[in-house]
Design a protein around this nucleic acid. Structure first.
Length: 744
DNA sequence: GAGCACTGC
C-alpha cells in the first residue's frame, strides 16, 4: 500500500550553494516521450494498437480480480499510482462485463472540468465511438451525452452533488466511481458521506473509490462501520432483504503504477531564503548535468511573487552565461536555458509555453506554484526542486474567517512533487529543507472539509434533507467549531431559522444557487433593492479571478490603464464598470489588449452571469420579466451588497490605517495593495484620514499581515439599518440554535 | 504601508 514510499529510493544530503549534488550516474536509456500532457502519453506515441496498449497497462492484470471483488463487496477502494490506467480502464471493464445491462449507467466523477472532458474523450477513443453517445460527460455549462444511449457518464463532483438534489438515491446509476479521491475536496467528502447513506437504502449500488495515495484504512473503516442507532424510517424492511444484503462492506486493493525511481536529496540544514536556494540549485543542476542530454527542471514554489523573483534571478544567470560564452568564442558544453513561470493568473498562452517541446541543446526551467501539482502535468521533467511550502485557505474559527496562509507541505505532497521527476526516466528531487523537517511533516493534508468555511456545504446538506448536520456521518468530521460557525452564519443570513430548518422564503432559494450563502443572499435580495442586473454581474465576477492583467514588467502601465475604470466605491463597483463596458464591445480581444484585461476571465464572468440569471429566474418564477437595474444609481447596489456581506464588515481603527471587524475580533486588518482603493489613495497628496471608515471585504489574505481584498466602501449607518439584528444578537448571544446544543 | 494557492456548482 505504500508503494510511493518504496519508490523514492535514497536520501542524500547536500547544501545549496556549497556542496554540489553528485554527478548523474549513467543510467538506462528510456525513450523520451513527446507527449504534451499525461493524458495523451502512452498509446498515441507508440506503435502498439489500442488493444495491445490496454493489455499492457498495470491495471489489466487485475481486471478479473476487480470484477470478482465487485460481486462480493459493496465498496471497493482502489489505490493506484499514476500511470496504472485505473481511470480509463475500470469503467470499461464494468461496461464490458454487463454492469449497464439493466439500462442504468456507470458514473465516474472527477474533481476538475478539463480532466472530465479528457477522460471521457480518451475512453471514447479507446472504444472507437463518438463522444456523446455511449460515452458522455457533464460539466457546468456542457452536457455531452445522450439519455437512453450513454452508458458511461463522466462528470465533475459538483454536478453529481447537484444531481442528488433532484434524485436523492441516484437511481439512474448502478455504479459510482469517485476518481482522484485523495485530493479530498469538500465535494469529495460530501459525496462519500452521502453515498454511504444512499448505500443503506440502495443495497444494489456499487461504489468504487480510486486514488493515488489515500488514508485508505480510515476510509475502509468509514464504509464498514454502520451507525448503531439507525432510525426506523432508515431501517431496511425485512422483506426487501435479498442477495445484496449478504455483501461485505468494503475491500481495499492496490495496483502498482508505472514510474521510474527518483533520488531524493535534502539540505543539511534549513535554508534562510528558499528563493535564493532554489536559484542556486537550478544553477548547480545546470552546471553539473551539462552532459545529460535530457532533463528539464520543475520548481515548486508557494506564491506568484516568489516565482517572479526566482525567474528574475535565473534570467540574470542566463544572461551572464550567454555573455561568457560569447566572450570565450567557443562552444560551451552547457546548454541554453529557457526559463518559464507558471501560475494561475498567467495569461493562457503564456501557460501553454511550458508544454512546448524543448529544443536540442536547451534546458527548460519551469518555476511554478502548486498549479503544477494537480491541475497541469508538465512533460519531460527529470529534476524537481521543492521549496516545502504551500499556500492554503485555512478557516480560523476563533476569528470566523477563511485566511489564505503559507504552510509547510505534507509527506504525501512532498512525495507527489518528487514523483514528478520520475515520469519519463529516473530523476532527482532536491528538497530545500532537511530530512528532519520531512520527518516532522504531517502525513496527509487535512481534507478541505476540516479546514474551510462550511457555510455552503451545510446549506447544501440541509437542502438534501440532512437536518442534523452535527450528527452527519462525515468521512473526516470537521471541527465542531467550524460547523457551529457555519450554522451561525446561515442563521445570520436568515437561510435557516432557530430550529435550524431551511427558511422557505430565503434558505430554499439560496440553496438552489451555486454560490456562497452570502453571495446567494445578496443576489436574491437584489430583487427588492431593484439592482438585480448589477448584482448579477458583481456576484459573477467574484466567482472568477484575475480580471486585471498585471505582468511584472508593466505594472505601472497596467495600473494606469486600470485606473480608468476605478471608482471611490471600491473594487466591486470598479469591476462592475469593466463588465458594463466590456459587454458593449464589438471587438472584445482588442478591448482587453488595450486595457490589459483578461479576456478569458471576462468571458467566463458573462457565462456565469447568464447561468445565474437563469437559475434566479427559475427560483422566482419570473421567466420573461425584465430584471431590475438601478441604472447610474450606485446606492441600491451598495446597500444590497451590505445586506449580503454584513458579516465581512470592518471599521477603521483610531490609528487611521488598520481595520477591525465588527465581530469583536482584535485582529488587525489591512487594505491589500492590489485593491483599487490603495491605488486611488496613493495618488492623493495627503494620506492622513483619507481611508474610508467602514468597508466590506470579500476575502482575507495573509502574508506579512492580514490583508482584505475585494473591498467596497459603505455608509456605517447602513450596517445598523440593514444588519442591526445581527450586530445586536452578536453582542448578547440571545439566540441559541438547536444544533449548538447537540455539540455540548 | 506595499503584493494576490487551486478547484468547483
Amino acid at each position: 500500500m505504500s508503494q510511493n514510499q518504496s519508490k523514492s529510493t535514497t536520501n542524500k544530503y547536500w547544501k545549496p550553494g556549497s556542496t554540489r549534488p553528485p554527478r548523474q550516474q549513467s543510467s538506462s536509456i528510456v525513450d523520451r516521450q513527446d507527449s504534451t500532457s499525461e493524458n495523451v502519453d502512452l498509446y498515441q506515441h507508440s506503435s502498439m494498437s489500442i488493444v495491445q496498449h490496454r493489455r499492457h497497462l498495470p491495471i489489466a492484470a487485475y481486471r478479473t480480480h476487480i470484477l470478482h471483488l465487485l460481486e462480493k463487496y459493496r465498496t471497493l477502494i482502489i489505490i493506484g499510482e499514476t500511470g496504472s490506467g485505473k481511470s480509463t480502464q475500470i469503467p470499461q471493464y464494468l461496461l464490458e462485463s454487463g454492469w449497464t445491462r439493466n439500462g442504468k449507467l456507470i458514473c465516474m466523477t472527477e474533481p476538475r472540468r478539463i480532466a472530465t472532458i479528457q477522460l471521457a474523450q480518451r475512453i471514447a477513443d479507446e472504444k472507437d465511438v463518438v463522444l456523446g453517445k455511449e460515452i458522455g460527460y457533464r460539466i457546468r455549462f456542457e452536457d455531452v451525452y445522450s439519455s437512453g444511449l450513454t452508458q458511461i457518464l463522466v462528470m465533475t463532483e459538483g454536478l453529481l452533488l447537484r444531481e442528488l438534489m433532484y434524485d436523492p438515491l441516484l437511481t439512474r446509476y448502478n455504479v459510482i466511481i469517485i476518481d482522484e479521491a485523495h485530493e479530498r475536496s469538500i465535494q469529495t467528502d460530501l459525496l462519500l458521506g452521502l453515498l454511504k447513506k444512499i448505500q443503506r437504502r440502495r443495497r444494489d449500488l456499487r461504489l468504487i473509490i480510486t486514488s493515488a495515495t489515500i488514508d485508505s484504512e480510515r476510509l475502509r473503516a468509514f464504509f464498514e462501520h454502520q451507525p448503531t442507532s439507525i432510525s426506523k424510517t432508515e431501517n431496511q424492511p425485512e422483506e426487501n432483504k435479498n442477495e445484496d444484503e449478504k455483501l461485505d462492506e468494503c475491500f481495499i486493493m492496490s495496483v502498482e503504477g508505472r514510474s521510474y525511481p527518483v533520488e531524493i536529496y535534502h539540505t543539511t540544514e534549513p535554508v534562510p531564503d528558499y528563493c535564493k536556494a532554489c536559484v542556486d540549485t537550478c544553477i548547480q543542476i545546470h552546471e553539473n548535468e551539462k552532459y545529460n542530454e535530457q532533463g528539464d527542471i520543475l520548481c515548486f514554489i508557494s506564491g506568484q511573487d516568489d516565482v517572479l523573483r526566482i525567474i528574475r534571478d535565473l534570467h540574470d544567470y542566463a544572461r551572464r552565461l550567454n555573455d561568457e560564452q560569447q566572450h570565450l568564442k567557443r562552444k560551451d558544453e552547457r546548454k541554453k536555458l529557457i526559463i518559464l513561470p507558471l501560475y494561475a493568473s498567467l495569461k493562457f498562452l503564456d501557460q501553454m509555453k511550458v508544454f512546448e517541446k524543448t529544443p536540442i541543446n536547451t534546458r527548460k526551467i519551469i518555476v511554478a506554484t502548486n498549479i503544477a501539482e494537480t491541475s497541469l502535468t508538465i512533460p519531460n521533467i527529470v529534476y524537481v526542486i521543492d521549496c516545502g511550502y504551500v499556500r492554503l485557505k485555512l478557516f480560523n474559527p476563533e476569528f470566523g474567517f477563511e485566511v489564505l496562509t503559507t504552510l509547510p507541505i505534507t509527506c504525501s505532497s512532498a512525495l507527489q512533487r518528487a514523483g514528478r521527476a520520475g515520469r519519463v526516466r529516473s530523476g532527482k528531487a532536491y528538497r530545500l529543507y532537511p530530512a528532519v523537517e520531512y520527518k516532522k511533516m504531517k502525513e496527509f493534508q487535512l481534507p478541505e472539509i476540516q479546514r474551510c468555511d462550511l457555510a455552503l456545504a451545510v446549506l447544501q446538506l440541509k437542502a438534501l434533507g440532512i437536518h442534523n448536520i452535527v450528527r452527519f456521518d462525515f468521512p473526516s468530521p470537521p471541527p465542531s467549531k467550524n460547523l457551529l460557525q457555519a450554522i451561525e452564519c446561515l442563521y445570520a443570513l436568515r437561510a435557516i431559522d432557530q430550529q435550524s430548518h431551511l427558511t422557505s422564503d430565503l434558505g430554499m432559494k439560496m440553496a438552489e444557487l451555486p454560490l456562497h450563502p452570502a453571495h446567494a443572499r445578496a443576489l436574491i435580495l437584489s430583487l427588492e433593492y431593484g439592482c438585480t442586473q448589477e448584482i448579477l454581474k458583481i456576484i459573477a465576477s467574484l466567482q472568477v479571478k484575475h480580471v486585471f492583467h498585471n505582468p511584472p514588467n508593466e505594472k505601472m502601465r497596467a495600473a494606469k490603464l486600470h485606473s480608468s475604470f476605478a471608482c471611490q466605491e471600491g473594487d466591486l463597483i470598479t469591476v462592475l464598470n469593466v463588465i458594463k463596458v466590456f459587454e458593449q464591445q464589438m471587438m472584445p480581444q482588442q478591448f482587453c489588449d488595450k486595457y490589459m484585461l483578461n479576456l478569458k476571465s471576462l468571458k467566463r464572468i458573462l457565462e456565469i452571469k447568464d447561468s445565474l440569471e437563469k437559475s434566479l429566474r427559475r427560483i422566482i418564477a419570473k421567466n420573461n420579466k425584465i430584471l431590475s437595474s438601478s441604472g447610474d444609481d450606485v446606492i441600491p447596489v451598495l446597500k444590497c451588497l451590505t445586506d449580503g456581506f454584513f458579516m465581512n464588515a470592518a471599521q477603521l481603527s483610531i490609528d487611521g490605517y488598520t481595520y477591525r471587524t465588527f465581530r469583536g475580533s482584535l485582529q488587525e486588518l489591512y487594505i491589500h495593495p492590489s485593491c483599487i482603493l490603495s491605488a486611488i489613495l496613493s495618488k492623493q497628496d495627503t494620506t492622513q484620514s483619507q481611508l474610508p471608515k467602514t468597508i466590506l471585504f470579500n476575502e482575507l489574505i495573509q502574508s506579512s499581515k492580514i490583508f482584505m481584498s475585494d473591498i467596497t466602501v459603505i455608509d456605517p449607518n447602513w450596517l445598523y439599518e440593514i444588519a442591526g439584528h445581527y450586530y445586536e444578537q452578536l453582542s448578547t448571544r440571545q439566540w441559541i440554535l438547536k444544533e449548538s446544543c447537540d455539540l455540548e
